[in-house]
Design a protein around this nucleic acid. Structure first.
Lengths: 116, 116
DNA sequence: TCAATCATCAACCAAACGGTTGACAACGCA
DNA sequence: TGCGTTGTCAACCGTTTGGTTGATGATTGA
């Protein structure tokens, strides 16, 4: 029972899957169309799409025998939220550190060791 | 020879490693300090840190026996760049689709099939 | 109806992953 | 000098992953 964010990051850790996502930003496509450019079997691509689907990055519709695949771009927000949260935290910390260093410098104390 | 982005996403796919990153946004810390809260061995945490290091998310300094670990927040930019690029592409596409649908609607044609 | 098409399921395989324990390297300090 | 502390290396183990091939399901079109 892995959490959502783990699945999303894991899904995008594979270059083929990142490429699938990239192509799906341009247009929906069937499994066969998506598989065509890669030197691997259709089954392998189908598995990749399942991983993307489980991560919520993609949905499949049914249209006769075909399964048009559609990108669910909202998931990007989940990642962006995580990244930006900690980026901001890190930046705040560096600002604080800068302030401390400036203060130390002003009062002429030597710096030492790492931040506690 | 895996590419950088793959390593970064793979590194962040593990909840323990995401937590390590989260904690490192607050302060640098030694391997031992970082390992303390988790129910796994120090060696396992050391391995996690190696993965983060290989992905460029983290660097280790040497200070006596200790190895203070430091977050390299710039890597966030790499992910953000990738995500935002395709998010933007997807949004542009949806705008185009909206335009097409509006046009079809205006000329009273039925919609059919998926975008080519 | 029935063959062709599109996609998935199932079984299998090798490699990678996340964890373990045990040994050892490097360093500071008493 | 030598001992305690901190961290990594090495070997191992079970599970997951990314691929394969072969069979099967589902649906359309002739």
């Amino acid at each position: 029972m892995d959490d959502r964010l783990s699945k999303v990051f894991a899904a995008l850790a594979d270059p083929t899957r990142r490429d699938l996502v990239a192509r799906l930003t341009r247009a929906d496509a069937t499994v066969g169309e998506l598989a065509e450019p890669y030197p691997i079997s259709v089954q392998a691509v189908s598995k990749h799409l399942k991983v993307l689907e489980d991560a919520g990055l993609v949905t499949k519709a049914r249209q006769a025998q075909r399964r048009p695949v559609h990108l669910e771009a909202e998931v990007f927000d989940l990642m962006t939220a995580w990244i930006e949260r900690y980026r901001r935290q890190a930046e705040e910390r560096y600002s604080r550190l800068d302030a401390v260093l400036a203060d130390l410098n002003a009062t002429d104390n030597p710096t030492e060791g790492i931040a506690s």
